[in-house]
Design a binder for these strands. Sequence first.
RNA 1: GGCCCCAUCGUCUAGCGGUCUAGGACACUAGGUUCUCAUCCUAGAAACCUGGGUUCGAGUCCCAGUGGGGUCACCA
Length: 434
Amino acid sequence: MIRTRFAPSPTGALHIGGLRTALYSFALAKHDKGEFILRIEDTDIKREVEGSKERIKEILKLFGMDWDGYFVQSDRAREGIYKKAAEALVEAGHAFYCDCKPRNAKEEGYSKELRDPCRDAKKKEGAIKLMVPDGEHVGFRDFVLDKEVTWETSTVADTTLLKSDGFPTYHLAVVVDDHDMDITHVLRGHDWMPSTPVHLLVYKCLGYEKPEIGHLTDILDPEGGKLSKRKGSTSVDGLLKEGYLPEAVLNFIMLLGWAPKDNRELFSLEEFVKAFDHKGFQKSNPVFNKEKLDWFNGEYIRQKSDPELLEAFKPFIPEGADAEKVKKVIPLIKDRIKTLADFKTMAGFLFEVKTVDPTQFGENHKIHLQKAAQAIAGSSDLMKVVEENKFKTGDFFMDLRIAIAGSRVTPPITDSIAILGKEETLARLKKFTD
RNA sequence: GGCCCCAUCGUCUAGCGGUCUAGGACACUAGGUUCUCAUCCUAGAAACCUGGGUUCGAGUCCCAGUGGGGUCACCA
């Protein structure tokens, strides 16, 4: 049976790259009725952000990805599981102690030293590092890239496996955990590729069988470079706040690095799981382009029923807005918006008076608005006004639109008036007919 | 800089040696519907990084160059 895992570190907001990794891992397992494990990689206690563990779980549930097993690495670390493995490696001559001052790559830049000076010092305490052999080859078949990737071990560094605080680094923890948890397929970001030879060596030295491993493409920023957390809102929560539907976000990331053979684009999670296969993986890095996300979002907004939209709009409607009124507004705007947040820009004028720029009016606006006000007061048809007075239809309605909404872009104006009510509409027109 | 990965329209991609005058989607342009904007419909413009091979034949295979990305912490 296929068992995959999603192994985020709780160091902040979950980003769409992480969500995509989770999605593909989920689909990989579920396509074959396998199991999907959630493992929190929190072995660097200093970097943990309060509440992010919980938020990750909420988001996975919101997107419909329930897990079949849940582990927290710090719990396992306290049981001494990783320490034991590291010590066994020292015992077997595959690792060594080092009590030197840790370096900090951020400040010191990249290092060229692959061999640690302590590797033959036979120290008895400190961190434990892997003693990488020279002149050997390590490799694996990447199931995403669909190719063999190999390294010469002389290009692989003596990597720290156990920190001096007794907690493992990622490199030890993943190997031990994926083995202990019977993970059959490891799917992770491409940024992990360079440390894969270390993991391969650890598998070998520990006597473990290695799982299938695949490295996903990185999502690129339109500006170039890896999608960064600073540019734009790429966190899942950020997208949700901007008014994107979970279905849309999910469908969007499905196709960022994977594609079906039949050019299909619209998938629910269930449909995606069914269609998913490892052959559809893309090998080159995709660019995050929001316009496509906008399109997906529009599609899903239009697919939703009005009651469903009423629920979805809740965080985006003006404060104190009457639910009955909102209900009437929905059918008017659902074809016209890209995000839920567009509710306010498209229909805000129905809930509050907008300022009107008088220069927007056409030259006949006074007579247009006077005749319109008369008709509305008498509850007669506005189209009749246009015909009887030989007004230009577009000009007439545009003046009306500006007077009522303060904008040249609104839902159909007669429908808007119906929602606004006779009294409020006339009050708005009055300002420009005197 | 060392190591590793990648390379089809602006973007996401289909293509797995001949059916490619390279297909779809987003975006874009034009037209239709329309009280604006959208939705919807129709049409259009738009790509195989370069150079060598292999082959009767290459977008598809191989090599090099170039370009892009990643990584080089007791962070994940």
